[in-house]
Design a protein around this nucleic acid. Structure first.
Lengths: 101, 101
DNA sequence: AACCTGCTTCGACATACATCTAAACAACAG
DNA sequence: CTGTTGTTTAGATGTATGTCGAAGCAGGTT
């Protein structure tokens, strides 16, 4: 339990991945081609691909190949779950305690 | 910007720290003595102290020494900020894009 | 078929991190 | 002042992570 949650937070714990998720989630249509993402950084393709994999395995995004290109989109359910967990007002951390232990 | 946010998420990206924050935030009175925390894990004192430092430097908790003991409590403002950032419904990720870039 | 182009996987490297033991520090009790 | 207890810091060590270049794979195009 705690390990799964920690994996998601850890995935967000890198500036590149945070920006990647932001770009993906804020894109019109909710989908972005990887080629767009690579262009937004001064990093190599393999590095971006690695970060996308980490985000994907954490359940934060999901990708789909259509023809030549691969498109990624955010997974709102996962984001909501993390958001609710940090919402002190709503959960008063009873939920955290339950999820985490 | 993105680096600061990533630091906070990275701090949450460890099962031990996630449980620590949970324990601290859910404790009656909102404060916990370090001695209570150490007892809740099978880790050594120095290791717990290290994790508390990471959480503290990420702005997620703050500690205070009173006499012999040190007490930690959560910082709701930081938690709220992170929670809002992940709340897709509220921010539609325009806020993320602004915070992160 | 042969060939591009877009993306991922592999192997290597340097840096960062979690954990421990030992030592230092802080507050109190005798 | 000396010892005891609670907490942090320092140093050491094994593992994980971010990055790259080179190679592999998938889908077009010619």
């Amino acid at each position: 339990m705690a390990a799964d949650l920690a994996r998601a937070f850890k995935a967000l714990g890198d500036p590149v991945r945070l920006r990647l998720l932001s770009l993906i989630a804020s894109y019109d249509g909710g989908e972005v081609c990887v080629c767009e993402l690579i262009g937004a950084f001064t990093l190599t393709g393999p590095t971006i691909s690695h970060h996308l994999r980490v985000l994907r395995e954490a359940g934060l995004i999901e990708g789909e190949r259509r023809g030549t290109w691969v498109y990624y989109r955010a997974v709102p359910k996962t984001l909501e779950r993390l958001s609710a967990l940090l919402d002190v007002r709503r959960s008063r951390h009873d939920a955290i305690e339950r999820s985490v232990s």
